[in-house]
Design a protein around this nucleic acid. Structure first.
Lengths: 339, 339
DNA sequence: CATAAAATCCGAAACGTTTCGGGTACGAGT
DNA sequence: ACTCGTACCCGAAACGTTTCGGATTTTATG
């Protein structure tokens, strides 16, 4: 590997000049710059980012911390799409991404912050992390710039991006109400997700706005998992033939209740309307295709990285958060209730 | 950030001793080691990997090069699952992953190898790259250790992992033949994918093994894309009512021909049997659920990283390749042909 | 022609580690 | 008392950059 020294020697100049030439400083003659560039090319030189980072104290990398980068078919596509956005945005501004796996074993040995500091990442994006994760506090307390996706925390050099979950939920429920439903249940995710509270809030708000009662018994817990949702929905739907619609806090759980409905012989949407949340790829392919409220996951990732890099540039981001709109996507799991 | 020097000063020893103490060398007294460890903890020290990498000339990172890390719903889950495997395997041996986006713009400016060398990655895994990509050669020629997924290249310090694509295809076609089909078409992917050739080979071999003719006109090109497959299949199925089954080189394309079949009023599987390849998450949810040959994508990633790290350790990996088995997953898109 | 100002270059220190080649002290063996 | 071995420790160089402060040369200005 050719170094800057080799170039200097070969071109008969000092390393200082090579460095300054290659980095576009103005105090180097065009001729020598040309010469240096040529010998650099000829020696097949590429700069050593490690050395540069070390001296400049800037690594030009941002860490990506995914709670559990695993294959659980579930939210995967969510994670993936967010990652794509992050990646694109980061590469726009010349940052590279380093992936921290939080393998359960490793997590015991090294804390998040430790990982970040060792690798000298300038900032970190945290995704898919639960609200009760002790490391959230740790990361915030460390002064590593950080942006969360879907966890609303704020602080010095920390921000978040999310979507307007309560309004999203309201749209979903309103759609159901407009169709004529009055007995609308909800399958929510677990309490450790920030979005759960929001979506529930939207559900309740829209119900009361429409003058409908909100019943605690109508709110089930599906843990954000398909089988859990199915398990919760099955006895519920059996016991409550009066409910004609259910709003699910995630598409995956919607799949679960669809399955439960089928087992009960309920036709969708004639007997039961269902609307999900997320607009995962799958939802387009179920039969019938799922009505849902769609989040632009790519955009979330893109904005997350953008927010982080703006924090890093320290151009005083007056906005340390970013909440994106989402939209109702009406497909075929919703219809007026049968009278 | 506390450095090793700070510890040295605070503990009243030399940096050498601190380094050796922290790295578990034997020539340091238990007492001093304890002292050093304590002050390290107290100063909240974490080592600077950059500096270490620089001097040791080992970055403990492997690069991950994904052809186009984009949201095209397509193979995404494929990429993602492979990534999970890579991640787990890499973290098992203490390697971190750095993600190289090959944003089209950037690709012009910096070659793959350049990226790798700048970031001082020790090796790289390439995924989703086309056979005609000029950079394949570049990477091989550079002496950066490298393993490809689904591209069969070999060389010094380069290996690959893939699945037994021809046998997979054979299983698929045999299944069709066993059901009684004789007029079996194939929708293949583009020529730039290594797997295309393999799967076609399997298709043809199984056909001839069964004494059936292989007709070039029965082989369509779907470019690995759903709409393309649909576009190709529609007129073909219209013109060839005699074909009762089609084998697709990817699940995504299978979705396309399902769509085409539906438009033509063909029932699946009564009028047309379809089998795909990959076992993407979606295939379980289509209606009817897709029969396919499943690849363990996670495992592919896992083995890829394992292979790479073994190359890096230089324990003379007698096997510079890894081909995984795959299995036929019979779901509901295949049935005997109607007589 | 003298001098100021610009243009161009360079030496050396610094970033945080690891490691090589010693050095000192102390007890044991003769 | 001398040497030797062992246990423990340290100074300094090295990794490949950037950058501060200054040095030298050239050009412009009076």
């Amino acid at each position: 590997m050719a170094t800057i020294k080799d170039i200097a020697k070969s071109a008969g100049v000092s390393v200082t000049t090579v460095s300054r030439a290659l980095n576009g400083y103005s105090d180097v003659n065009d001729k020598t710059r040309k010469l240096i560039e040529d010998t650099a090319k000829q020696l097949n030189y590429s700069p050593n980012t490690l050395a540069r980072s070390l001296v400049m104290n800037k690594s030009q990398t941002i860490g990506l911390l995914v709670s559990e980068l695993n294959r659980s078919g579930a939210k995967d596509m969510f994670t993936y799409e967010v990652m794509c956005g992050i990646n694109d945005s980061a590469s726009d501004v010349g940052y590279d991404l380093i992936l921290f796996s939080t393998n359960s074993v490793m997590q015991k040995q090294k804390s998040y912050t430790q990982l970040c500091r060792e690798r000298q990442v300038e900032g970190v994006i945290m995704q898919g992390i639960k609200m009760d994760d002790p490391y959230i506090k740790e990361v915030i307390d460390s002064n590593i710039p950080c942006v969360f996706v879907d966890v609303e925390v704020e602080g010095k050099d920390v921000g978040y991006v999310t979507t307007d979950n309560v309004f999203g939920a309201q749209m979903a429920v309103k759609h159901l109400i407009n169709l004529g439903h009055t007995e609308i249940a909800m399958v929510n995710g677990h309490d450790q997700a920030h979005v759960s509270a929001k979506r529930r809030k939207g559900y309740e708000r829209e119900l009361t706005d429409a003058g409908l009662p909100v019943r605690d018994t109508y709110i089930l817990n599906g843990e954000f998992l398909e089988p859990m949702a199915e398990a919760a929905a099955f006895p519920f739907l059996q016991a409550h033939p009066e409910v004609t619609a259910v709003f699910c806090a995630s598409d995956l759980m919607a799949l679960g209740v669809m399955r439960a409905a089928k087992r009960l012989g309920l036709r969708i949407p004639e007997d039961l309307s269902i609307v999900g949340f997320d607009d995962i790829v799958l939802s387009e392919y179920t039969s019938p295709p799922l009505t849902t409220v769609g989040q632009d996951k790519y955009q979330m990732g893109y904005e997350a990285a953008k927010l982080l890099t703006s924090i890093l540039k320290n151009d005083d981001p007056n906005q340390k958060m970013c909440v994106l709109d989402n939209r109702l996507i009406v497909r075929e799991t919703t219809a007026p209730p049968r009278k």
